[in-house]
Simulated assay, not measured.
Amino acid sequence: MKIRFYADRENALTVHFEIWGGMHVLAAGDWIDVEFAESVVPSSVEHLPGALVLTQEGAGVMRIRDSQGREIDPAGG
């Protein structure tokens, strides 16, 4: 499943990638595309004030691209 997440026009959004512990800060008005790997246990999205927590369950790895098309490492590397 592929989903696009946006930061609002006035505030940055911190995105946390679990289970790897990486994070990425989206500038106000920016976005990322996230493609979750298929898994038996469903992956999850949690929206908190100023933050988004994306959790990939199972053995797969989510793929993340920023608005410029660059790949983001969910482990923060």
Score class of each variant (00 low, 15 high):
30 D>M: 11
7 A>P: 04
5 F>Q: 01
54 L>D: 04
64 I>W: 03
40 V>P: 08
26 L>E: 10
36 F>Y: 14
65 R>K: 15
61 V>N: 07
43 S>N: 15
38 E>I: 07
14 T>S: 03
36 F>Q: 02
74 P>W: 07
11 N>I: 07
42 P>W: 11
19 I>T: 15
53 V>W: 06
63 R>T: 13
63 R>P: 06
5 F>P: 04
27 A>S: 14
12 A>N: 09
28 A>F: 06
13 L>P: 10
41 V>P: 04
76 G>K: 10
72 I>E: 04
2 K>H: 05
31 W>T: 04
72 I>Q: 00
67 S>N: 14
54 L>N: 03
66 D>N: 15
66 D>R: 12
43 S>K: 11
64 I>E: 02
11 N>T: 04
23 M>G: 03
13 L>H: 01
55 T>A: 15
75 A>K: 13
30 D>T: 11
35 E>L: 05
48 L>G: 00
6 Y>D: 09
3 I>H: 14
75 A>E: 08
62 M>Q: 03
20 W>F: 00
43 S>V: 01
44 S>L: 09
31 W>Q: 05
1 M>G: 12
29 G>F: 04
41 V>C: 10
34 V>K: 01
70 R>Y: 10
28 A>M: 05
7 A>V: 08
10 E>D: 06
77 G>P: 01
32 I>Q: 08
27 A>C: 04
52 L>K: 02
52 L>P: 06
63 R>Q: 13
46 E>M: 12
47 H>M: 13
11 N>K: 09
61 V>Q: 14
23 M>P: 02
15 V>E: 10
60 G>L: 07
1 M>Q: 11
77 G>K: 10
14 T>W: 04
59 A>I: 06
30 D>I: 00
56 Q>R: 10
48 L>Y: 06
22 G>R: 06
18 E>T: 00
46 E>S: 11
21 G>Y: 04
76 G>D: 08
21 G>R: 00
44 S>H: 10
25 V>G: 10
